[in-house]
Amino acid sequence: MRIELSGTRGSLAAAGPGTVGYGGDTASILVTAEGRSIVLDAGSGIRRLGDVVAGQDRVDVLLTHLHMDHIQGLGFFGPMFDPSIEVHVWGPGSPKFSLEQLLSRYLSPPLFPVHVRELSSVVLHDTDPGSFELGPVTVTTDYVCHPGATLGYRLSVNGTSMAYLPDHEPALGVEHFPEQPEWTSGFDLMAGVDVLIHDAQYTDDEYAERQGWGHSTFDQALDVAELCEVGSLVTFHHDPGHDDGMLDEIAAAIATHPLPFEFVPGRAGTVIDV
């Protein structure tokens, strides 16, 4: 399994000289395994992944949720307009609307020139908690703590696994975090994975002002990684206000503590082989 971080930013793209190191594009990563390509989320980082998967006959895009920073790149993903590539888009609907109806609010005029129904090679899948197979890859998904229907994903293949919870606030309302596993959002998805890509948007001070917004602090991400006994933690969904200098400082501070897992600050362009 190979994991390539393309977009690591949260909330809003933040291009500029201060974010070159960690990247300014919003959430999108590519997982490849045994010739299968799976893209996780379709933030602005998905655009360059279109070239990477060109020439394949199928690509699957797993959306965690439909906040703009996770879907805004979908209309700029080349394979969406290439009839020789089947694009399967998976993501949560809502109690009243299908995934297609919800995505159409963005992928339709006047917000976007092309309507999603005009993209003949795109297949949309309303996704519920559970497991399904994409070739050799087992995908397990469940709802996690974030405003609105939001899925986390676990991908497993040949005894290796990774989990992706880019927008996740498992500490919400918990007096003593982390709670025991049974009462920790997303635990089953994250438990024992080789690589956990997890929300670490806020500092402790920022979180104090933004509880309930659906994101974690660096310390909470570290706590949840330890609870879940992961092999490595990739911090992700960087706040658009955090520049490279600030993120480097936080990473350096974390690196001074002994951790029971590998700590990987999530930088665009990072490739992880599992």
Partner: peptide, 23 residues
């Protein structure tokens, strides 16, 4: 889509538990 035996409670119940501790 299959649903496997789970150790973690559904997020709806987790949030209700957290809500109840503030009641």
């Amino acid at each position: 889509m299959r649903r496997e035996a789970s150790m973690t409670q559904p997020i709806e119940l987790i949030l209700l538990r957290q809500w109840s501790t503030y009641q």
